[in-house]
Computed example of a mutant assay.
Amino acid sequence: MDHNDSFREFMAAHQRSLMRTAYLLTGDAHLAEDLLQSVLIKVLGRWPELAHVASPQAYARKALVNQYISWRRRLVRTTELPSAEPPERSHSSEESTIVRLAMRQALAQLPPRQRAVIVLRYYEDLTEHETAKLLNCSIGTVKSQAHHALARLRALAPELAPKFAEMEDLKGAHR
């Protein structure tokens, strides 16, 4: 099997998960696509060496987070526009849609590093150790960033406080 075939297999297996991570980081489908595309170009360039590592998905996920943080640092102004009306969605439960929208709006207001920690820890279900490794920081930094981010999220969206408590309880039991 040549490198192009193995990269295609990698993409077939992990593109959806990587796109979800990109979307959760950016909060915008188009930006997420751009982010993922720019990262996949880098991954493809390094594929001959990455094809033989234990987890090329971990490399791609780390590249997503690093590229996202880099983009956020360069932005002079935000690309997210407040809207009086939520975008139309075809989800089954109106309540879950409202929760998702409130969560997305609150996440968008976090600094990039805190947002990355929340996405990796609670949406990607990574351990503190895995998150620290991806973000190239200490476990203590991950813990403090998560703590500060959850406190900020509680202040931004008090109606979601039970959801944040549930997230902390779940992770507290599975460190």
Rank of each mutant, 00 (worst) to 15 (best):
V65C: 08
L31V: 03
I139T: 09
E130W: 03
S70A: 14
S83V: 03
A173N: 08
T127P: 10
A102K: 14
H30Y: 06
A12S: 08
D5N: 02
A102I: 03
E9Q: 12
Q145G: 01
F164I: 09
R154Q: 14
I41H: 00
F7V: 04
T127D: 01
T97K: 08
S90W: 14
T131R: 02
M19H: 14
H91M: 13
D2S: 13
E159W: 03
Q57M: 05
E49Q: 14
K171E: 06
L24K: 05
L35N: 02
L75W: 07
A54V: 05
H129V: 15
Q105I: 01
R113L: 15
Q67E: 10
H129D: 12
P111M: 07
M19R: 13
L134Q: 11
A132Y: 02
R121W: 02
E95S: 11
V117E: 04
A132P: 00
R72Q: 15
A108S: 13
R72N: 04
L153I: 14
L81T: 11
K163F: 13
P56Q: 11
T141G: 02
E124W: 00
L75C: 08
L35A: 01
R100H: 08
S70C: 08
V117C: 04
A108D: 02
A108Q: 04
P112F: 06
